[in-house]
Design a protein around this nucleic acid. Sequence first.
RNA 1: GGGGUUGUAGCUCAGUCGGUUAGAGUGCCAGCCUGUCACGCUGGAAGUCGCGGGUUCGAGCCCCGUCAACCCCGCCA
Length: 664
Amino acid sequence: MQLDQLGNFTRSHRNGALRMDHVGQTVCLLGWCKRSRDMGSLVFLDLRDRWGVVQIQANETEIAPDLLARLKSVRSEFVLGVEGVVVEREAKNPNLPTGDVEVKLTGLKIFNTAATPPIPVDDMAESGADAGEDLRLKYRFLDLRRPSLQRSMMLRSEVSYLVRDHFRTHDFIEIETPILTKSTPEGARDYLVPSRVHPGEFFALPQSPQLFKQLLQVSGFERYIQICRCFRDEDLRADRQPEFTQVDVEMSFVREEDVQAIIEPLMVQLAGLVGQQVATPFQRLPYRDAMEWYGSDKPDVRCPVKIQDLTALFAASDFNLFRAAAESQGQRRVRALCFAGEQAGAMSRKQLEELQEVAKHLGAGGLPYAKWGKDGLSSSFKKFITPELEAALKAKLDGASAGLIVFAVGTDAQTSKVLGELRLRLARAFGQLDETRFAFLWVVDFPLLEWSEEHARFVACHHPFTSPHPEDLDLLETNPGACRAVAYDLVLNGYEVGGGSIRIHDAETQSRMFRTLGIGEAEARSKFGFLLDALTFGAPPMGGLALGLDRLVMLLVGETSIREVIAFPKTAQARCLMTDAPSEVDPRQLKELHIASTAGAPAQAYRAGVMFFESVPAELQAPFRALQTLSHGVKPHSTSTLTLDGELVRVETSNLGGPSFEFE
RNA sequence: GGGGUUGUAGCUCAGUCGGUUAGAGUGCCAGCCUGUCACGCUGGAAGUCGCGGGUUCGAGCCCCGUCAACCCCGCCA
């Protein structure tokens, strides 16, 4: 097809803007063909641009035959320039903002054709049948044409502008910090960048500009903000990508409340973008209470039901499992969720079994429950429920005649994990989670440190520059696990959307902190020498926080995956399906960077004989299965490739003449 | 690192107990249609049942392996 040049064709109006006021005007429009409807001698075409859709119309009796033919040759997603006259429609469409008018075609330019899209470019309003996400990501440039994603990206842009406006009016300045920086030993895995000019040395991409923003306070900027990209080489989730955007904030001469007071009105404005009213000040919830009541450090408080401690009710029970907890002096507790209502009481055996599977998956042994429904009490431990106990339990249902109590027994960490998850699931199932509103809160007084079994030492909960709570300072040496931090998370609807702290601003406390973390003098010098130096040159009291922009926008648009608000996201395996990154590079590039890859190294060779076992011990099952595989159609002396213990290996088999074998 | 779900036409999916030529909707192509707007009507093309093995007279369906996407646990200062 002969394509037209853009030439001096100039847009006079945006497609979504045309109204009755424009009737009679000659307009020049640009855009993509959303869909055409050919009725023979009457043709309609929907022209889409970023601002909307307008109907183009051509009638056989009013138009040159070659122009009509040209219009009929247009297919979906062709790129067009349309000249025409705005007229009032004969049949109006109330579902379209431009539905009162249409444009009578007088000239048509076809700037480009388009192959049939491999994914629907329209939002399937009623069927809801989107293309699979892998296809959407492969053809992301088409996916992003869909109105819903266009709206999400536009809202994201609005959020960014609003954030910058907000901080600008509060005298913050935006400062860019390095993308190529120093690898930090604590925390998440770094993405590394080899240095060509320094053989064997590496930059790291920032997990966050944490130290730079603190140094900017030492420099005296007092109020810093940056919307910046951060990188973490950890496994992904629906709300976690390897690169993500953070609204990074740091202030001098502030207390915790000062930081929060800057953030809250911003959140009010952002929620307002999607018509949500939220009141300030936000609720403050100590970490300890969050874990006790909600089993989570990022509770969704839109459900009022809290976890309750029912240990005492079982002190004299015959139910050994629960009584043992009551006798453990707080080591183990019986905690429970009490959902009142007919829906809760009508939970079927099958549903409870599904719930039990969830609980087991989270580490519970089972899911004890007691339920009051149409048939009265039913319970997994009914024979231990005396009338007195039943009365005591039922009293937890706030006087309702029907309801469900699910129990978890164990350490606080165990029971919190199980009940925290079940609380959300049950609340949704019973309609006791109001998903129409936004619930912000601050979780405060986080612990400073937690014991790491893996590292056999204390590690920082937030980061090693977080200020210990002034009242707990001396616990650093005596009982580090009990020391609170001046750290706070901003939580929205069960998601952590921000986190921050007051920082350590004196070298002495910072050194004590490093000592507690088991970071020696020399190591601290080599890794954080620049910070320790800076703290000796007049560092002001400081604090700040960082907001997860992707998560925030995700919640604003009502999505459950941050991929829906990132233009070009990566898959759960941290791959870009569109560009196919990451990919192999030319060996010359590696050589220049002084890098050698150990991936794809030659497979190890194994020698295997034939073994016979009456019963196969567990530790031999994998090699035994390998031998079984080999025994099918493999000659006594042969080489074959198979999977052994999850690794692809080349296996040489030879008949060794006896029950002997060698495996490494 | 571990667990789970999914993979069939361009797209979204169905496919019974393992049994004849693998279906539907949509999209695409062609024809008809003067008020459509998820246009309608008629016809047509369209398949490596993710990939590789195995069992079987016979596999989309059963078994083993593998790849990919998604969800979760670990991990994410």
